[in-house]
């Protein structure tokens, strides 16, 4: 009896779940595009990280956000490096060229219509670069509540065979 009821519960749950998923605005694909790039390794965290810094994400987590188009990717390097190769669809906010004055206004200009609770994945070239860390700290201070740091950066992204967007020819 218990086994029969177990099967019935699963059948009803499956039918309801699939039915609701069809009509729900938050419905998802039945088969997701998940892949493990790091083999379950955690994110790269620099030794300069401090308590209270925005969370660090692994290449897996960054890629998942990328496939779900749920987050805004921000490249913290200068324009030249950004054009040489970046994560597709990224926005360039060079940390070293942040303007003086009210950064809040500046971020609203470069991120038009992007709410402060939208996930932001900030990166630069890789482990030798800490521009992402500094930019993320600034954004967190300004109230961007879901700021995340992908410290592996464009190098770890490319090393895992993921697409890089190149807008100009550059020497390595």
């Amino acid at each position: 009896m218990a086994f029969k009821q177990c099967v019935l519960l699963v059948v009803v749950a499956t039918l309801v779940a699939l039915g609701v998923n069809v009509v729900s605005p938050n419905g998802i694909d039945l088969i997701g595009k998940y892949r493990s790039l790091s083999g379950g390794e955690g994110p790269i965290v620099p030794p300069t990280a401090e308590e209270g810094d925005p969370p660090f994400v692994s290449v897996d987590e960054a890629y998942l956000e990328f496939t779900q188009a749920a987050a805004v990717f921000i490249d913290a390097r200068d324009e030249e490096e950004f054009f040489c190769g970046t994560i597709p669809g990224s926005i360039n906010i060079p940390f070293e060229y942040l303007p003086d004055g009210d950064l809040s206004v500046y971020f609203e200009e470069v991120l038009p219509g992007v709410g402060r609770n939208v996930p932001m994945i900030i990166f630069c070239s890789g482990e030798e670069c800490d521009l992402s860390l500094h930019l993320a700290r600034n954004m967190q201070e300004l109230g961007y509540t879901r700021t995340l740091i992908f410290f592996g950066g464009s190098r770890e992204w490319e090393a895992n065979g993921l697409e890089i967007e190149r807008r100009s020819e550059c020497e390595e």
Binding site: A17, N21, I28, D29, L30, G32, K33, Y34
Partner: peptide
Amino acid sequence: GYLINLMALI
């Protein structure tokens, strides 16, 4: 990976 969304729904 191919089971994750189905599991998340059901």
